[in-house]
């Protein structure tokens, strides 16, 4: 049901520029106003959110440790440096592995049934499908986004050209099909399929989980459509996009409607981004269970709101309360007065 809502909603979103551009001739509105506004929302929302997270305190160092810590004898007990980092540098590597290789997902296990000679055994076996789908999706998305830089830069930097060459290595079709386009679609479909088919994931999914996937799928499909089928006027589009970055706005007449649909969907994605779970992208960098070294026994960490007024129940009070039986039991007292029974005092 949630998936259906999302699909329907994205479908409606496609209709807006279709009618807006074709019927209402709002070319400037859809070509410039919407994307610029969306980009501003994205930028401000994104930065605001990250600053807002950053303004919250980190009272304690709470890394989740995933291996042996730095021992008193690191030769005898080898430290697992990148799952249980002790220093800033090790923590940096842990973060790099987490961000670029999805290390925690790589650990994933799934319970599965195994027949052995003594009957059935449930074992928690490594399960890397989610990792694979996630890597496929995120890297394709990243490269596709990077490729779009060619529309905003003049001259086009060499690394972009190199990347495009590798991406189009298979030389299928004209214009050459990019591998990442295929991978991106495959990644989205696999993640979406998993969400629909795995009953556990299905049960926990909201419309807000399907929507970004469907939206990204629509973005990708519209992009592929305009590149390979509609064969839009790329020169004119570059004209427009360069205008956007040089604040010299104009919308060439030769751009087809498929471009506007693509741009509109991207705009929605950008505007939606800061208010959604897509913020996991910057969020991972601020996750206290991953980005802190496991060194609080060796180094002092400051809690900005540590309350010095919270003190231990004082020993002096303890001795006052239990002094008499303590003295009888022969336990040493700091203040011998406390050991006298009340009747003696009287």
């Amino acid at each position: 049901m949630n998936a259906l809502y999302s699909l329907l909603f994205v479908f409606l979103l496609v209709l807006i520029p279709l009618f807006g551009v074709d019927a209402a001739h709002l070319r400037t509105f859809f070509g410039i106003c919407i994307p610029v506004t969306a980009f501003i929302i994205f930028l401000i929302g994104f930065i605001y959110k990250v600053i807002n997270w950053g303004r919250s305190d980190v009272p304690f160092r709470i890394p989740t440790t995933g291996g042996q810590f730095l021992s008193y004898d690191p030769k005898m007990f080898k430290q697992n440096k990148y799952d249980c980092p002790q220093t800033g540098a090790q923590t940096f590597v842990r973060m790099v592995l987490e961000v670029f290789a999805f290390r925690s997902l790589f650990r994933n296990t799934a319970a599965s049934l195994h027949e052995t000679k003594d009957g059935h055994v449930v074992a928690y076996k490594s399960s890397k499908w989610l990792w694979l789908f996630a890597i496929l999706f995120h890297y394709s998305f990243f490269i596709v986004a990077l490729r779009h830089l060619r529309l905003f830069l003049e001259p086009i930097p060499f690394f972009l050209k190199g990347m495009e060459f590798v991406d189009g290595l298979l030389q299928i079709g004209t214009p050459t099909m990019y591998l990442t386009d295929v991978c991106l679609i495959a990644g989205v479909v696999l993640l979406l399929g998993r969400r629909l088919i795995d009953p556990k994931i299905n049960y926990i999914s909201y419309a807000s989980d399907y929507f970004p996937l469907v939206l990204i799928l629509a973005v990708a499909l519209s992009g592929i459509y305009m590149r390979y089928y509609a064969k839009v006027d790329v020169i004119a589009i570059k004209d427009l996009t360069m205008g956007l970055v040089t604040f010299n706005y104009h919308v060439p007449e030769t751009i087809g409607v498929s471009f506007f649909i693509h741009v509109f969907l991207v705009s929605i994605l950008m505007a939606y981004f800061p208010f959604s779970k897509l913020m996991h992208m910057p969020g991972i960098f601020l996750s206290p269970t991953r980005n802190l070294p496991n060194d609080t026994r060796a180094k002092h960490h400051v809690n900005p709101w540590n309350d010095p007024n919270i003190k231990a129940h004082a020993y002096a009070d303890y001795e006052k309360e239990f002094g008499v039986p303590m003295a009888e039991a022969g336990l040493p007292l700091d203040n011998p007065e406390n050991g006298k029974a009340p009747e003696e005092e009287a």
Binding site: K49, R55, P59, I62, A111, M279, H280, I284, L286
Partner: peptide, 21 residues
């Protein structure tokens, strides 16, 4: 405001289900 962990964890879950089982 006092715990970044809480604020970040409230926002970034994508419900991928890796934790489920």
């Amino acid at each position: 405001d006092k715990f970044r962990s809480l604020k970040v964890f409230m926002d970034i879950c994508v419900r991928c289900g890796a934790c489920a089982d």
